[in-house]
Design a protein around this nucleic acid. Structure first.
Lengths: 193, 193
DNA sequence: AGCATAAACGGACTTTACCCCGCTTAGTAT
DNA sequence: ATACTAAGCGGGGTAAAGTCCGTTTATGCT
């Protein structure tokens, strides 16, 4: 009995998940996130709608699943890549590097990431890898601050909020550089002794 | 010819708007934001569905309209109330006071504010009164920072993002105090010379 | 191989936001 | 008053998310 998954995803189910993700990626490239509907996806994949929902739970779930690999790859670079993004540099330096990379990342995938936001319930801040990582680096920076958890949440919002919530995505605007530079200012000022 | 509105809202339309807002407030108190539907609202108000959409454009629009007065009142306190929230105190002191009040405000009205988020398009950061106010106070603080606009956007996200996006609203959690305290830490550190 | 069963499937059904457009009416000009 | 017209109104229609449940099938056991 092989353990491909932690007990219980049937082979056909796994196959269908992959197929659905592939079709979703196609439709995304072809039509844009707005136009990817559950019915459309199901039909184009040659599967029932119920199946799509069973696999992904919600429309947002599809986009979240679509980001899964990409997000994991990013995480690997952060956790074990070369410094200053990965370990080996000072915490503040790593925070700056993280913000810079993260802004690029958010920018590059903003369409999917926006679509992956479940508008009905909040993102658990604990689940956010950004929040956790920022929290850790803040800890290492040795700040004299009582509530690092909340500060980390706020910095996460400062980093990701603009792209998820506020800034309209116009092509030529250099918003990404400005956000990255401004993040550096923010972090360096917060972490000054 | 009286100028109740800047040209062109018919009397019956104005009456209906008020009535709809009143009914919406009722339903909100009675059923919660989730259960306020456009059909339900229209029916309970004794009006057609088309009318509701004509008046508010979108479901989110209703909640935005519901917050309009409240938001305006808040704005008045900020622009011309007693210090440190209003003018008369130093910019950093005002930033801290603003954040504290704003967190309370967001907390108090989180149900409506979340419902007022239009899930389909971003909030224009320029329209956000928070962003503008924070931008102004940052300017007065005389920081040696090149891009105050972007910094203001990020601080706005740090202030409002957690409540709009991340933090789950559990009753007894003292999240509001923690956010307010943490905001103070953030602002004072950012503004240190 | 045959069986039992939990998992997966499909698609009709429900709900809700939002659109459309022919009809009605407030406001105004004569 | 009357007539004109733009704004407003109503409610049926559409599209898309999400639910339900009867049917099918993969999988481990004997």
């Amino acid at each position: 009995m092989p353990f491909g998954r932690p007990r219980g995803e049937r082979a056909d189910a796994a196959r269908n998940r992959e197929h659905l993700l592939a079709v979703a990626r196609e439709m995304l490239a072809e039509l844009g996130a707005e136009k990817v509907t559950m019915d459309g996806l199901a039909e184009r994949a040659g599967l029932g709608k119920g199946t799509v929902f069973r696999r992904f739970g919600t429309r947002a779930g599809i986009f979240a699943a679509l980001m899964d690999d990409t997000e994991r790859a990013f995480q690997v670079r952060v956790l074990s890549g070369p410094p200053p993004l990965g370990p080996g540099a000072g915490p503040v330096e790593r925070l700056v590097a993280y913000g810079r990379e993260r802004v690029d990342f958010l920018f590059e995938h903003h369409a999917i990431l926006r679509a992956a936001l479940d508008r009905t319930r909040p993102i658990p801040a604990e689940t956010s890898m950004s929040a956790l990582h920022i929290r850790m680096l803040l800890g290492q920076a040795g700040l004299d601050v009582a509530d690092l958890d909340t500060l980390a949440t706020q910095l996460t919002a400062a980093l990701e909020g603009p792209l998820l919530l506020y800034v309209a995505m116009t092509e030529e605007s250099p918003a990404d550089e400005r956000l990255a530079d401004s993040w550096q200012v923010l972090v360096e000022r917060v972490c000054r002794p």
